[in-house]
Design a protein around this nucleic acid. Structure first.
Lengths: 146, 146
DNA sequence: CGACAACTATTGTATTATACAACTGTTTCA
DNA sequence: TGAAACAGTTGTATAATACAATAGTTGTCG
């Protein structure tokens, strides 16, 4: 059978399953997906504006704006008016945010350790590499399409 | 950096990107994701009941029931009362359904051909293999959790 | 054999994530 | 300096989902 066709199918299934997993694995104390990804982005790429986050995830600014509200309220992200450009907002992760991020990260890492318990290190690395490459492609494609 | 941690992150990103792609790539004449996956399941695994489909995707029966409505209306899936057990419903793909499935499949295959244009055949196969394995794991896990 | 528990599917209702549109305040530039 | 462009927020609509209530069917046990 055609590899592309199978791949396409497997990706569709993957999307469904991951979506399902998100719900059933969501532990109460952990950050939800949007908060987790936002904090990850802020932790990695320093302070960002709302629009930059929206661009990172290819989501509408309004969506990010709403997702931000609870995590700003919870004190995980600090929000200041931009100094140079007062339209912008400068979002940065707080120490509490970093702590929450680490906790969730560890909890998820644990999950993946169980999930991939019998995978060799080589397979894990290989999968990671290919997935990264695929993700980059997806991003490029989506940016073109906009 | 820890491979598991990176993998976990990459999967989260993947879920987001694929979700985004679903919206921007949805061509008008193509089947939507749920219809596509349902037809795929019916084409591969013969006639199924609503509950069996729900189990396949780890979704609530009510969700499948609703997703079924438009594709039954469109004549892509035939719906009969089960002969032995009249509570059940017997869903099977119709010739029109097969045609629609093939068209969407081809359209998606094309998309993946572009997306993975510069991947070697070996990489594609490798990615497919690892993804399949990961998907199986996810399913096992989710079934346990229910 | 008949009542009741268990099961299959549908429909009602609520929630969540998202986009688009309308609006406010800020900046840039002709 | 006024108009167009831009950043973000809030209002509104839609789609996908889960859970609850319900209807019809089956199976079992006293």
């Amino acid at each position: 059978m055609d590899v592309l066709q199978e791949l396409e199918r497997e990706v569709a299934v993957f999307a469904r399953r991951v979506e399902g997993a998100r719900q059933s694995w969501q532990r109460h104390q952990d950050l939800d997906r949007s908060a987790y990804l936002i904090l990850l982005a802020l932790a990695n790429d320093g302070p960002l504006a709302v629009g930059q986050l929206a661009n990172t995830f290819q989501l509408d600014i309004s969506t990010i704006s709403r997702q931000l509200a609870p995590i700003v309220d919870a004190g995980l992200v600090a929000k200041e008016r931009g100094e140079i450009d007062k339209r912008q907002v400068r979002l940065s992760i707080t120490p509490e945010g970093s702590a929450a991020l680490e906790a969730t990260r560890e909890s998820r890492r644990q999950l993946y350790a169980e999930l991939l318990a019998d995978w060799s290190e080589a397979d894990r690395e290989h999968f990671l590499g290919l997935l990264k490459r695929f993700n980059e492609r997806l991003l490029e494609r989506q940016q073109l399409d906009r």
